[in-house]
Amino acid sequence: MTNYQIDYKKNLARNLKYYRELNDLKAYELGNLLHVSKSTISSWETGTRSPDINILVKISEIFNISLDEFCNTSNNCFFT
């Protein structure tokens, strides 16, 4: 894994938790909206796993922010 991939995962994990809490959502509530488990949300927020691009789009729609803003980068996001 490259440094860019590691930084991306850290930013994504931090941003997911930040925007979830900013929107007063519990992990299970966001999971319900995305049709995933609370433990999946937790794994994304700790950076052990990352959501795919389709889920990232849904997350940005739920939080009413652009995907670029959610990824918090002016460069291209790295999607696995």
Score class of each variant (00 low, 15 high):
1 M>G: 14
2 T>V: 00
2 T>L: 03
3 N>H: 00
6 I>Q: 06
6 I>Y: 07
7 D>K: 02
7 D>T: 06
9 K>F: 04
9 K>R: 14
10 K>E: 13
10 K>H: 14
12 L>Q: 01
13 A>K: 04
16 L>A: 08
18 Y>M: 14
18 Y>E: 13
19 Y>Q: 09
20 R>S: 05
20 R>W: 05
22 L>K: 11
23 N>L: 04
23 N>C: 07
24 D>C: 06
24 D>S: 05
24 D>Y: 00
25 L>N: 01
25 L>S: 05
26 K>S: 04
26 K>V: 04
27 A>H: 01
27 A>N: 00
28 Y>T: 11
28 Y>E: 06
29 E>S: 01
29 E>P: 00
30 L>F: 09
30 L>Q: 10
30 L>T: 10
31 G>P: 05
32 N>V: 08
32 N>M: 04
32 N>L: 03
33 L>M: 14
33 L>Y: 08
33 L>I: 09
34 L>F: 08
34 L>K: 11
35 H>R: 10
35 H>P: 00
37 S>C: 12
37 S>Y: 13
37 S>K: 12
39 S>Q: 10
39 S>A: 12
39 S>N: 11
39 S>G: 06
41 I>N: 05
41 I>W: 05
42 S>L: 05
42 S>I: 12
43 S>M: 00
43 S>R: 02
43 S>E: 02
44 W>V: 10
45 E>P: 09
45 E>I: 07
45 E>R: 01
46 T>I: 10
46 T>Q: 00
46 T>F: 01
48 T>F: 00
49 R>M: 03
49 R>N: 08
50 S>Q: 13
50 S>K: 13
50 S>Y: 13
50 S>A: 12
51 P>Q: 08
51 P>T: 07
51 P>M: 06
52 D>T: 15
52 D>Q: 13
53 I>V: 15
53 I>R: 10
54 N>L: 07
54 N>A: 06
56 L>G: 12
56 L>Y: 05
60 S>I: 08
62 I>Q: 07
62 I>D: 10
63 F>D: 07
63 F>T: 09
64 N>K: 15
64 N>P: 09
65 I>R: 03
65 I>N: 04
67 L>K: 00
69 E>H: 12
70 F>P: 07
70 F>K: 12
70 F>Q: 08
70 F>L: 14
70 F>C: 11
71 C>S: 05
72 N>E: 12
73 T>V: 09
74 S>M: 13
74 S>I: 14
75 N>I: 10
75 N>A: 05
76 N>W: 12
76 N>M: 06
77 C>Y: 10
77 C>D: 14
78 F>V: 15
78 F>P: 05
78 F>Q: 09
79 F>S: 15
80 T>S: 11
80 T>H: 12
80 T>M: 08
80 T>Y: 15
